[in-house]
Design a protein around this nucleic acid. Structure first.
Lengths: 210, 210
DNA sequence: GTCTATATTTCGATAGAC
DNA sequence: GTCTATCGAAATATAGAC
């Protein structure tokens, strides 16, 4: 064989290193934005020489794009419980819980997404126009069905989705502000209380508790 | 006189140029973040040579700090209608309306604030710990009073404030995403509908409509 | 696949004529 | 107070030995 490293072994190395770099990149992009992040900082955090990053990801923008796509995929799967539910209390309640849990577990990914959208979505505009638009249309249709069945008040489904996104992601994107006002990071109990508060106000707000 | 420009005239020039630069800087910082913004871009947008920016603002960070302080001041004054109200329907309703109107009129300022907080508030941490904390304590005390008087449901005042901030600012910070899903920027009527949707869900959600 | 050294560009900031 | 020219630092990206 010309190559001492077998394809499968090489794939393992590539996958492991890509994951390591992506994890470091997510953190640095979240802390500094795309413009403020440097390949050197990402390399240091990953414990690799800077040139290795360019071996696995051709450009800084390619690396950034992968980080944004990751959080997007995670969010897309968060609504499966909503689709299976028979009504808004279980469905929207489960969706809020899932989104809150993602804010807690993946705050950096959420921040990178916020950064990307805030600056005009230069690298994921096509996702907004295709995948996200179709995904949203499906969920608002479900909400309209629940309204027609008398299971909740006739609220605007789009603005309801915006409120759920805004509120749940706020605990990630503005986590630093919340921690400062709270006198420190939210404890497990405080996170549970936050979930319940958000669920209670929104579910009552759409008339799903009566 | 040694100086051909009288102090008052000089002050007028300084004020006018500072305002011009701050306006351009807000737009560029909103579009690119602190790290992605360049003094050259800001100078081009203001129609001035780059060196003039350094004449009025010693460093890029000084200029950025002024932009962040501006939006903070605007938000602080948005709750005056809340303080004067006799209950949550008028008070919180007016606060939501004021915050929505600011998101519509100052989307760039809102984005710069979001950028700053998302990245750990390196230049306005002291504001969070002093002014914002005191301001929030005053408003949550007012909400607790309304709850004690039986004017609204016993929701957690802090999480209610987070929801109001998150939802209203979402229309500025994620305005690009909303416009994409909406098929274009929100019309006057769409903005009015957004305001009413947000008010309706939150006011019903805190039990202030019954 | 890894890493050192470096090419090239662009940034923030300043000097100095006007 | 304005503007051209430029310095020094730091960035992305690559070349090439191992």
């Amino acid at each position: 064989m010309r190559d001492p490293v077998r394809p499968s072994r090489r794939n393992e190395i590539r996958q492991a290193n890509e994951a390591l770099i992506l994890q470091a990149a997510e953190k640095v992009f979240a802390e500094a934005g795309f413009g403020g992040a440097t390949m050197q900082l990402i390399a240091d955090m990953a414990g690799l020489p800077k040139a290795n990053l360019h071996y696995y990801f051709a450009t800084k923008e390619d690396l950034y794009r992968r980080v944004v796509q990751n959080i997007f995929e995670i969010w897309l799967h968060a609504a499966e419980a909503m689709d299976d539910a028979s009504g808004p209390i279980a469905g929207i309640g489960a969706y809020i819980e899932a989104k809150m849990e993602i804010s807690r577990r993946h705050p950096d990914g959420s921040k990178v997404w916020a950064y990307e959208v805030m600056h005009g979505a230069p690298v994921i505009q096509d996702y907004l126009e295709t995948t996200l638009r179709e995904w949203t249309a499906g969920r608002t249709a479900l909400i309209r069905k629940w309204i027609a069945e008398g299971k909740m008040a006739p609220v605007d489904p789009d603005h309801l989705m915006y409120m759920i996104w805004a509120t749940t992601q706020h605990y990630a994107d503005f986590g630093h502000q919340i921690a400062t006002l709270n006198g420190g990071p939210l404890s497990d109990a405080a996170w549970a209380a936050a979930k319940e508060s958000v669920k209670a106000i929104i579910l009552r707000g759409i008339g799903a508790l009566e």
